[in-house]
């Protein structure tokens, strides 16, 4: 590999996206609209936190620097996180939570599928484990988009508002940074820009069933992958990092 740093930064994109999505969903524990969905969302949260651990452990292995997954998760500063911006967006309401999840799940299903042909054995192994989880997440979130979109007037209005507001964060999924581009040229991680058409088609198919119209706004907010975050990020980190910052090196 030409540059290990490029690989590590690319891994942080997915580790941090999984971690923060898990954190956001975890905020809903005990607040779901009905207990069955509360459990469903908490299950998904745990899957994502688990996935971030796989990536952090791989990073630690490559860096060979004695850092643990906890160091990466809880002791970096804002600019050192490389997650997609969409996962920083607040849960807001059930429709936003579902729409966010649907965009991400549809993307990761395609992304992980492409990871299965990676030349890197660890990436392949992570993808094989994660794609089964994501297949279920995607089923869950797609069905809820359809139920809300094709439901009552109010539910349609709510899911439509969520889609309109979150749309500008979906473009970032498909814009490769320089470091990602280099890694994808070596077939270690997929080139995310090649997944855009498939993703758009899948989203459109679900929207059609849900009686929703694809937003026409093509402008995309970028920055997360290179460490420039939304104004929500500081609040998430202060809550997420509180324990490790207050009691350094604490153990469960």
């Amino acid at each position: 590999m030409k540059d290990q740093n490029d690989f590590i930064k690319s891994l942080f994109v997915h580790a941090d996206t999984a971690l923060l999505l898990g954190q956001r969903l975890g905020e809903l524990c005990g607040h779901g609209p009905v207990i069955e969905q509360d459990i469903a969302m908490t299950n998904i949260a745990l899957d994502y936190v688990g996935r971030s651990r796989l990536f952090f452990n791989l990073i630690s292995q490559i860096e060979n620097n004695q850092k643990t997954e906890d160091d990466y998760a809880f002791l970096r500063t804002e600019n050192e996180y490389h997650n997609l911006l969409i996962v920083e967006y607040p849960n807001t309401d059930f429709a936003y939570t579902v729409a966010k999840q649907f965009f991400i799940d549809t993307f990761y299903y395609l992304y992980l599928d492409a990871c299965l042909t990676s030349v890197n054995q660890e990436i392949k192994a992570i993808a094989e484990k994660s794609i089964k989880e994501t297949a279920y997440h995607k089923k869950w979130s797609s069905e809820w988009v359809i139920r809300l979109g094709d439901g009552t007037e109010l539910s349609h209005q709510k899911i439509n508002a969520a889609i309109q507001d979150l749309w500008m964060y979906t473009g970032e999924f498909f814009v490769s940074t320089d470091f990602e581009m280099k890694i994808s040229l070596e077939n270690i991680l997929p080139n995310c820009s090649t997944l855009k058409d498939k993703w758009t088609n899948e989203v459109q198919a679900v929207f059609q069933q849900a009686n929703l119209i694809m937003p026409s706004n093509a402008w995309a907010q970028l920055g997360g992958k290179t460490g420039n975050h939304t104004e929500y990020m500081g609040y998430i980190l202060s809550e997420m990092q509180y324990m490790q910052r207050t009691f350094p090196e604490m153990q469960w």
């Binding site: 069955e36 459990i39 089923k139």
Partner: peptide
Amino acid sequence: SLHAADATMAIENARDV
């Protein structure tokens, strides 16, 4: 037992619960 809007959702909820 559990609550669900229809049988499809009941199966999914049962999977999670």
